[in-house]
Each structure stands twice: as C-alpha cells, then as structure tokens.
Nucleic acid binder design. Structure first.
Lengths: 189, 189
DNA sequence: GCCCGCATGTAAGGCGTTACATGATTAA
DNA sequence: TTAATCATGTAACGCCTTACATGCGGGC
C-alpha cells in the first residue's frame, strides 16, 4: 500500500487537484513514482474518507470545477509511520531486460530496434530531469543547495531518477554496440 | 503479462524445476525479474497447459519427486513475438524513494537508518552480481566474452542489475551524507 | 529433537492496467 | 473544425502479495 504514501508525499509541498497529480504521476514528471489517473482519483477518495487529506472545491468559470487537496495532521502522522516501517528491497521490473535475457535465442535486429528506442527515451528523461534539477536549485551550486535549501526531498528523488535513466541509456547503448559487433562478425564468417 | 516471458527466458538455457526457478527468481539471484514461488508454480501450470513449455517427472529416492521444464517450439515462437511487441517504459517503484521525497517533513534519523540499511543491501548485491559475471566470463576479458561468447543474454542482464545496484548504493550514501550534514548544521545553530 | 532444505501447491485480498464514459473550452 | 486540455470518474480483469498447508530427509 505505497500509492497512498506517494500521494501524501506529493501533496506535502503544494495543494494539488486530481488532474494535476495525474500529470505529475504520468510518464513525464514522475521522478519518484508512477500511477494512472484512475488510480489517483480512487486513492484521493479513499484518503479523504480516511481523513488523511482534506479537499476544497474551487469553482471556475471557464474550466470545470476542481478539488484541491492538502495533507492533514493525520496524514502527516501516517507518512511518519510509513517512513519508520520496514522498506521492501526494490527491484527492476522491465520487459526490455527479459527480452535481452533471451538475446541468444531471438532475432538480434528486433532487439537492437527496441534498445535504440529505449535509449532515446532515456536520453529525453535525462534532459528533463537535468532541467528540473537546474530549476530547483536556481543560482546555487548543488552542494550549497543541498546544505542550505529548505525543500531538498524532491531534489534528492530527482537525482535518483536521473541516475537511473543514465543507467538505462548507457546500458542500452552498450548492449546495442555488443549486438551490432556480433552481427558484423557473423556476417563476415 | 511479462512473467510468462520471464519464465520462458529463464528456461531457455537450462531445464529447471519450479523450486529451482523459485530460487532463481528470489531476492538472491533475480538479476532480471522477481517473483514468488506461488506465482511461478501457477505460471508453470498455465504455460504447460498452453503448450509453451514441456515438463518431465524426475523420480528421486532421497528427495521428493520433481518436474523439470523445457521451452517448446511454440514457447520460443511466443518469446519471439513478445520481443517484437512494444515495450512499456520501465520506471522505478520503490518505497524508499517515496520516503526521501518526504524528507523535509519527517524525522531525518529514521530516514538515515533506512538509507544505511538499503546501502548495505545494495553493496551485497553488487558483490553477488560481480561474482556471477566473473564466473560467466571465466578466463576471458569482458570484451572478448561479449564478442565471442555463446550465451551473452544472462551476462548482459546481469550487467544491468549490477549498474542498478551501484546506483542504489551511491545514491543512498550520498543522501545519508547530505542528511547528516544538515543535521550537524541544525545542531550548531 | 529441532530446524533447514527440498518440493509443490491453494485461497483471499489488494493493487495496477485497460477500456469506456462525459462534457466544456481554447488553440491550430 | 479538429484536436488538445481541463476535470473526474466507473467497471472488468489480471497480476502480485500475504497467509496457510503438507511432508520427508539430513545436519547440528
């Protein structure tokens, strides 16, 4: 049950609507968790019912009305308890890695295409996260920001996301290079 | 539905029983996927029913009998199709990152303890994967092995696992250092 | 004598994904 | 006028996790 806590953590720094949360948890900006809009609307309903967040209706003229949510005292306590609870070890769960595991038995060209696509995606995320980090620390150097900044949580998680996507990019590129070399060697044999 | 394909990929290189698979997919050796024994036994039943794997009973005296599974032609075709299908982008899903996202609002000592524990776990995995890679490539250098070795799939996925755990280790250590520095600064204020 | 390893499952419940549904405004 | 953005959901299905169940053999 970690989606609740991810939502609570996201609402700590700013009041957000379900729609805004959905955008934050989508592929683009989710540097620490991923979820679909349906999950979020359902979870927000449950969180409010349990008194961990409080919503307030905002009436809009030109746009549909929306509900903005804030973390309550109880919600903060819940997060505190979650933080103290045992963490399960994380593991990657990625279709692409399964495909590479079977590399010796499937068509290399297909694999190369998939890896190339993923590398491009990873590069885009590296750029995105780099930009986010720049904006968060402003004029300050990273060292300075992390020592004296007020809100470093989102920065730290973004650093993890950045390193992860760099890892993806590098591994994909390396793997493509290996597969290409073997293909070339096979052709001249 | 990627567990099926992960199982198929794992059975490509050797005939395994459910129990052996369960060990491979457990925390210790799962360098490309993770699953619990119950999932695996259920999936093996389904895979056999669908004709993607074939099982043969091995009678043992001193131990309970077991069933060893091999990938069939149809199973290989299924894997081939899976490899060609679109891959979803992978994303990290990790309790610990959620906790760090809330770093500015929860007790730093608790967080430091969790991060320290995770760093130790990551170091253990780095060692484990390093050893596995050594054993796979034997006498050969990495370059040589990847160019001329016969089974490089498992090696490549293990490389991804190694890089991922190094990333975990480094990020945990860095984050602990940052939190400690801020705690020290707060104490002298 | 007790716990660990081998070997295989069932059952229930929670979480995530896919598909479907609605309806207004604004920019291309 | 067509598509994208804002805004919020319902329903069905499938995967993952947690708990429970069984039974023999070997080492400390």
């Amino acid at each position: 049950m970690a989606l609740r806590h991810a939502v609570l953590a996201a609402l700590l720094d700013e009041e957000l609507s379900g729609y805004q949360l959905a955008k934050a948890f989508d592929l683009g900006v989710a540097n620490f968790w991923h979820a679909l809009p349906q999950q979020l609307y359902a979870e927000l309903t449950r969180l409010e019912k349990d008194g961990l967040i409080a919503g307030r209706e905002v009436v809009q003229d030109t746009r549909p009305n929306k509900r903005l949510f804030t973390v309550t005292e109880a919600g903060l306590a819940e997060l505190e308890a979650f933080t103290a609870s045992v963490a399960k070890p994380s593991s990657i769960r990625d279709d692409l890695i399964v495909k590479v595991q079977a590399a010796d038995h499937v068509d290399p060209q297909t694999l190369i295409a998939q890896l190339t696509e993923r590398a491009a995606f990873a590069r885009a995320k590296v750029d995105l996260f780099g930009g986010l980090l720049d904006r968060m620390r402003g004029e300050r150097s990273e060292e300075e920001f992390l020592r004296y900044g007020e809100r470093i949580g989102p920065y730290l998680t973004c650093l993890r996301g950045l390193a992860f996507e760099r890892g993806n990019r590098d591994w994909c590129e390396r793997t493509v290079a290996v597969l290409r070399e073997r293909e070339a060697a096979r052709a001249t044999r």
